[in-house]
Amino acid sequence: MLYKTITKSDFEHLIDFILEQNEIIAPRKVGEKPDGTPIHQFLPIEAFSEMDLDYSKTEYSAKTYFLPFRENLSTWSFGDGGWKQDIQYRQKPRAIIGLHACDIHALLKLDKVMLKGPFPSPYYKARRENTVIIGMDHEPCGSGFCASLGTDILTHGFDLFLTDIGDRYFVAVDSDRGFRILSQVPLAEVTDEDRRRYVRARAAISEKQTIKVHTRNLPTLLDLTFNSAVWEKWGSKCLSCGACAMVCPTCYCYGVKERVCMDLASASKVKQLHSCNLVDFAEVAGGHNFRPTREHRLKYRYYHQHRGFAEAYDEPMCVGCNRCGDTCLAGINPPDVIADLEQENP
């Protein structure tokens, strides 16, 4: 890996340079909670000043810039007793600024499903390849438990990754594309002092990671507690509203629907992000539902995140951001659910 340092004012110039010809998505403050806590979201920006890089966690993950909530997979035009299929993968390049380590880990996990397995997704690949990732270190977000999942630190998955070392940014460069962008501003070689400051900055962040969730034996635990009353307890609270999956940086389940134009001359095959908590997730033609209760469905969200995915890719799908826990009106959150499973002693 190549490391450089840049001044903070040069970083601002860099953003302006990128903005001249490209779209930038960055954390923006969109409002405040009644208690005054700011609410941030990843949104397009027009100027450096619209960004708030000192955010702790965005309300929604940046997943939607890679797996949109709704996406047209094919367009059909009908005529002559048949149809024509049109598929478009093209995407405009853009940059996402300020992603934290957990959100970049989420993309790496999605890559495993969308790019590295059988049937790679061209729709995802088009977005992934055309997005420059400029990540950033930040202090722990409060409710996240990324340290327990090892997603608080990062070695790849970005073009540039910045750590604040006082008056300068310490920049890890992981792609030629990133290097060419960074080279637009004056770069300094990393000095011994920079190195020391970087290590201290990282250590200070790690020290503040206080939330611990026991996830190491979770795949087995989830199997052993499959019929536990813990699921009844949390399942009875679940609203089956799917909010957790919508804000999650890794949940990728979807449903497909046909949307027909009123004149019946054309139609589109539309993909819409779904959630395993929604009532019809596992319902088959004829009406049988393989997961008829909230308890079944909630359990499977955890089972997929922490066991199914782990069996397939040797790591959990969850990155520990706790956005699902933050957004859940019923207060269902992974640290509490997992703690309950731990105490269950099956």
């Binding site: 909670k33 609410i39 979201q41 929604y60 089956s240 799917g242 919508m246 804000v247 959630s275």
Partner: peptide, 21 residues
């Protein structure tokens, strides 16, 4: 549709109404 309003609300990037009191 059999899912609740939350699905489409979240898909519009809204902040939850309850968060706003």
């Amino acid at each position: 549709v059999v899912y609740p309003v939350c699905v489409e609300c979240k898909q519009k990037f809204n902040t939850c109404m309850f968060e706003k009191g």
